[in-house]
Write a protein that binds this DNA or RNA. Sequence first.
DNA 1: AAGTGGTCTAGACCACGTT
DNA 2: ACGTGGTCTAGACCACTTT
Lengths: 255, 255
Amino acid sequence: MPSSRIDPASDRSVYRQIADILRGKIESRELPPGGQLPSESSIVADYEVSRVTARRALSVLVTEGLVTAEHGRGWFVRRQPPVRRLSSDRFARRKEGKAAFTVDMEANKRAFAVDVLYIGRGAVPAGAAEKLGLDADAEVIIRRRRYLAEGQPIEYATSYIPLDIADGTPIAEPNSGPGGIYARMEDQGFVFERYDEEITARMPSEEEARILTLPVATPVLHLVRTAVASGRPVEVCDTVMDAAAFVLFYSLPAR
Amino acid sequence: MPSSRIDPASDRSVYRQIADILRGKIESRELPPGGQLPSESSIVADYEVSRVTARRALSVLVTEGLVTAEHGRGWFVRRQPPVRRLSSDRFARRKEGKAAFTVDMEANKRAFAVDVLYIGRGAVPAGAAEKLGLDADAEVIIRRRRYLAEGQPIEYATSYIPLDIADGTPIAEPNSGPGGIYARMEDQGFVFERYDEEITARMPSEEEARILTLPVATPVLHLVRTAVASGRPVEVCDTVMDAAAFVLFYSLPAR
DNA sequence: AAGTGGTCTAGACCACGTT
DNA sequence: ACGTGGTCTAGACCACTTT
């Protein structure tokens, strides 16, 4: 009888005790990913609490990112997205006419897909303008796409490329050809020198949560990469990733 | 009269409408960081809702990381912690007898402090054992400390160093001497080759939230660094950071 | 129709902080 | 003593999903 494990006189509030019990069952896999939790009414009956208290216990687990509710169906343990490992040599490995993302996903043996959301001209945002050395009101080629792994959206990326490099070239087209946009820049004679990456983590905006179909209480990794070739910044790529789906690797030489 | 802005017949629930209004005041700085929100009872009066609904509105803002409650005092807009920028050359800059953290904080012109939480022998955790090439039941020297910037805890770091390197040396002492533990390893003849870093972001555990005094719904950056010197891993450093307090920089050569 | 979650109310008692 | 947030109850009505 589960209610025997609840101590109303405890310092720990009843809703937290119920959350602890459910969390334990999730961690022990007694409730596996995708599995259904007891309904609110059965929690009310089992633990002899009000419905508000039962829901409060569940909301603790929502905040921890462990469970989600489906209206009319029930409460379920969240499935973890497949993890993608991004190595710092992912651009060095860009070979054989394949884009970095493709190389990376093949290295991880994952089924993947790309949604093209927008490709064309647009105004450059302030941060990217500064990094590209452009005026605040400049136009650039914008490439916005969403990456999916095994059907789940995991990454939302926007590239900004100066018009003098991209306009009228395959870089401004949905299909930029073998090797991706970096290969097209190399075709133009650009020699890549380095990629500067800036990483933060935060909670997603409402729009980001919608695009990545993130439940509440799941953070994102935000990576802004500036590609530098032949002495000038040639691309700023702003990437928002479902944090649960990524591990980033960097190897730094000591000297 | 604020209640005029609430439409009970709207598709958007009452508690979300109240949360929207309060969020707007926070974003517009009408309610500045550190400022006090209206009390629950005044929300009840102003918007003519029950206390449960008022609290639900506030809990939305808690989940978004915008506000916190202080028992007996009221609801307050969260202060953002000072941001610390971590460059990928932070170890290369380790010079003049100063530890990396010190160099880094001075470069950022921040007041900082270090709490030493534990220094001594202990069992190596599984992940660190694998990275160090040790048996799962091996003992290591553990250095656990907490870093504060301008009084706020922002980082919680634990280093694991094999006994044959650290035991009986200043590395196993609270004060490891000028230049920190890496300088002591260099004294022993180790030549540093590289630092491998593995970055993830996630919600903190309850313990991590307590140590970093994080409110709920604020993510952490988790960085695991393996230092490699003279052909062997000499330290694994596991760092949990308040994500709001950090920007990580990496510069990757293209070839 | 029955079961599930989503929203909301009116009230109660307790614990913390300030006056 | 008073105002603040923290926890909890018993009930209501609605919307969505499944049978």
